[in-house]
Design a protein around this nucleic acid. Sequence first.
DNA 1: GATGAAAAATCTGTGAC
DNA 2: GTCACAGATTTTTCATC
Lengths: 151, 151
Amino acid sequence: MLDDVDRRLLRYFQSDPGASAADLAERAGLSGAAGWRRLERMREAGIIRGVEARIDWAALGYAVEVSLRIALDKGEARAFDTFLAAAREVPEVIEIQTFLGRVDVRLSVLARDMAHYQQIYRDRILALPHIADIEALMLVARVHHDEALPL
Amino acid sequence: MLDDVDRRLLRYFQSDPGASAADLAERAGLSGAAGWRRLERMREAGIIRGVEARIDWAALGYAVEVSLRIALDKGEARAFDTFLAAAREVPEVIEIQTFLGRVDVRLSVLARDMAHYQQIYRDRILALPHIADIEALMLVARVHHDEALPL
DNA sequence: GATGAAAAATCTGTGAC
DNA sequence: GTCACAGATTTTTCATC
């Protein structure tokens, strides 16, 4: 499916997603057009899903991130889906994770400050359906790095 | 600091980071040059940190994501930093989170399959220093959406 | 199938106003 | 802030292997 040239392109793209296609192509030892075509093909195949904005939320006044582990009612069959649909409607919920064989869900909530977080928590989080229990942890640091994964 | 036009630009950029500056400017009701200069200013201010590649890891054969909660030794003063530095060296550890008032750390590990995960777990994770206890959860779904945050 | 070269359309980045 | 412009980039076309 992907040959070495594609993988190389992908790796360069990953480490510098802002670079021009011609640039990435050159680093992979191709002409601009050839590199562009390969990248486009990977885009169409869904391997490259595009690009995501990296925004400094703290600089915009969102200083507090809280991770919530929410246990759901075990009784109701539709509790899981109902909860997830409702959680997706809360703008400050920036991430939702679910786990194998678990009826609990992890939410990440981004808020301006503690007062704002408390407001979101009371008005939006506690209003979500089928909650059995909540555990909250305030995030101190979050390090992302999926640049080095061997392709 | 930021006026409404900046916020609008930022919002459009966030929902479509691949769009050209001219495009974003037009949507915000500006000429291309004016929009470009505003975006550039936000880039220099560090508000826009750039752009991140979105790659479909599952399509590349990375099908398993596991979330680990690792409790650290409470005794040693440097345990935290030593552990974090070592964890950052493992390519398959794609995310590290730390929490307020906690001596445990959350790692996300990306692996090709369960066999691969087990290998990473035994060879790389268990080799990390100062581990007191580990709890592992296999991720089923991860939904990201920080597009709708009110600016 | 793939590539490179070249051309056209678009975008970036700067200068003048 | 707009407008104009040169240079770079994207995207298509075409000849070639």
